[in-house]
Design a protein around this nucleic acid. Structure first.
Lengths: 129, 129
DNA sequence: TCTTGACCTTCCAGTAACTGGAACCCCTAT
DNA sequence: ATAGGGGTTCCAGTTACTGGAAGGTCAAGA
């Protein structure tokens, strides 16, 4: 199967699929004309990667997940550990974003938003430490 | 004032301060020996930038905020608009992250995390669409 | 057969916001 | 004189792609 069909099947952009080959996540065969020729296994891997990425796993984590997926003697504890580490990163990010959101929305509420120059948002940003 | 003192005062890394000059956010004077010589105004701007960045404003938004800050005939509505756009981005990101968190934490709960290979996390990632 | 258009290929550059490091200059104290 | 702790510039690397240029391939229609 050619790359644009694979892109349709997996929902990944063509460029992304080529990129995943570049960094060694997949290794599709080549036809005589030089075109990539994707097997079912390649397509499975790409779909797997797409789902892992959509859960926010980084490329390195995806590599690890793929390796575990292909390792039939894996321990589920290893998968769980990877996932928990990623969950901790998400939680960290969430708490930072919530903090930002709270501060920012408070500032926005106190700003009149009219044609006068006085603005508590700028005043806060400019305030001495 | 030299750059490392400014770094201490503003909490920004030296490299970041140089970078902010590179991209035109600040324009400190130079001493005879070529060293950057920071005025109070430079330091204020850097502190302002540090706080705006800590609220998650991107560099371009910071540029806009700084311009508004220096424009004494600004309308607070313009500041509020910038802040509201940024808030919307944060909310977008938050909802994506919450979605990821929900899915991932559910998967983690269902994984035994033992030395057996069967793992619902991998099963989900590998599932057909 | 020729052409046209839609494929495919590789390679290079750019994105956001820094960060690390190399190579080198300057200043002060011993 | 030298050692250290500043400072300077410039280049490369980070994440995960994305856009674009230049060019090869293939199938269909005139």
């Amino acid at each position: 199967m050619n790359i644009s069909d694979v892109a349709k099947r997996t929902g990944l952009p063509v460029k992304t699929i080529r990129y995943y080959e570049d960094i060694g996540l997949i290794a599709p065969a080549r036809s005589g004309n030089g075109y990539r020729s994707f097997s079912d296994s390649d397509i499975h891997k790409l779909a797997f990667l797409g789902r892992a990425r959509s859960l926010g796993f980084g490329i390195d984590a995806c590599r690890g997940l793929l390796r575990l997926y292909n390792d039939k003697s894996r321990a589920s504890a290893d998968v769980k550990k990877l996932a928990q580490e990623h969950l901790a990163e998400i939680d960290q990010k969430l708490s930072e974003l919530h903090q930002m959101r709270d501060t920012l929305s408070h500032l926005i509420e106190t700003c009149a938003g009219n044609d006068r120059p006085d603005c508590p948002i700028l005043a806060d940003l400019a305030s001495e430490c």
